[in-house]
C-alpha cells in the first residue's frame, strides 16, 4: 500500500485510455486548429502558409510518388535502430550501476556530464568516425536516447524498497531472484519514464541527424522543401513527424498501462 502510493505519487499514473468525451473534445480541438490554419493561410500570405487543401493535395502527391513512404521508412529505420540499441544498452547499464554501488558512484558523474552536453556537439566527430550513412545517424539517435534510459533505470534500482528486499531475503531468495521479482519490477515506473524521454529525444535526434549528415528521410525532405520554399510539401513533412511522435508516445503509454495493471485497485 505504501509502495503503491509512493511510486504512484512520483510518476504520473498511466493513462486510462481516452473516454468518448475526450475523443470528441480532441476532434473538436483538431477542427479548431484546422480552422485557424485555414484563416492563417488566407490572411498570412499564400506563399508562406499553404492552405489545408493544398497541403492535403501535396500529401497525396508525395504518397503516390512513393517519396513519403521511402522517407518515412528511412527515418523509422534510423529511429527504431537507435532507440532499441539505447534500450538494450541503457537498461542493463543503468541496472548494473544501481546494483554495483562502486560502479554507479564512479560512472554517474560522467553520465550526468554527457547527458548535459548538447549531443549536436558530437556530430562532427561522429561523422569523422562513422561517415554520413545510416550508421552515423543511428548512433546519433542512440546517443541521445541512451542517457535518460540509463539515468532513470539507475534511479529506479537505487530506489528499491529495502523492506521488500528484506522480506524476499527472509524467504531465502537468491540475489537473482530478488533482482527479478523485487528490484526490477519496482524500477519499472522509472524505466518507462526513461524510455519515453529516450523516445522523444531519439525522434528529435533522428531529424537532426538527417539534417547534418547525408540528407535523407523525413529530416532530409524537411531541409529540401524548406530551402526551396515548397511550403505545402514542407507542411506535409512536419505533420508526418508530429504523427510519428504521437504514435510512439501512445505505444509507450499502452506499454506502461499494461505493465502497471497491478496499480488499479480492482483486482484482475
Amino acid at each position: 500500500m505504501q509502495q503503491v502510493a509512493r511510486t504512484g505519487a512520483r510518476v504520473a499514473r498511466p493513462g486510462r485510455g481516452a473516454g468518448p468525451v475526450i475523443v470528441l473534445a480532441r476532434l473538436g480541438f483538431l477542427t479548431l486548429l484546422i480552422l485557424l490554419w485555414w484563416l492563417a493561410s488566407r490572411h498570412g500570405g499564400r506563399n508562406i502558409i499553404p492552405t489545408p487543401a493544398a497541403t492535403a493535395e501535396a500529401a497525396l502527391r508525395l504518397w503516390s510518388e512513393g517519396r513519403l513512404q521511402t522517407a518515412l521508412g528511412d527515418s523509422l529505420r534510423v529511429f527504431v535502430g537507435g532507440f532499441v540499441a539505447a534500450a538494450l544498452v541503457g537498461i542493463p547499464l543503468g541496472a548494473l550501476m544501481g546494483t554495483v554501488r562502486i560502479l554507479g558512484r564512479t560512472l554517474d558523474v560522467f553520465v550526468y556530464a554527457l547527458a548535459a552536453t548538447p549531443r549536436v556537439a558530437f556530430i562532427p566527430l561522429i561523422i569523422l568516425l562513422l561517415g554520413l550513412g545510416v550508421e552515423a545517424k543511428t548512433f546519433i539517435v542512440f546517443l541521445g536516447a541512451v542517457m535518460p534510459i540509463i539515468l532513470n533505470t539507475y534511479a529506479g534500482v537505487l530506489d528499491a524498497d529495502e523492506e521488500l528486499v528484506e522480506m524476499a531475503r527472509s524467504t531465502g531468495a537468491s540475489s537473482w531472484r530478488i533482482y527479478g521479482h523485487v528490484i526490477l519490477p519496482g524500477a519499472l515506473p522509472f524505466l518507462v519514464v526513461g524510455l519515453r524521454l529516450g523516445a522523444t529525444i531519439g525522434l528529435i535526434n533522428t531529424v537532426v541527424a538527417e539534417l547534418y549528415t547525408a540528407v535523407r528521410g523525413l529530416g532530409g525532405l524537411l531541409a529540401i522543401y524548406g530551402n526551396t520554399f515548397r511550403m505545402a510539401e514542407y507542411f506535409v513533412i512536419v505533420l508526418t513527424l508530429a504523427l510519428v511522435g504521437v504514435a510512439v508516445t501512445e505505444a509507450l503509454r499502452l506499454l506502461e498501462a499494461r505493465l502497471a495493471r497491478w496499480r488499479a485497485p480492482a483486482g484482475n
Binding site: 500500500m1 523492506e163 522480506m167 519490477p185 519496482g186
Partner: peptide
C-alpha cells in the same frame, strides 16, 4: 523460520 512483518511487505505487482 518464516517472518511476518508489521507493514505486510507484499509485492504490489504480484
Amino acid at each position: 523460520a518464516a517472518m511476518v512483518f508489521q507493514s505486510f511487505r507484499l509485492l504490489p505487482w504480484k
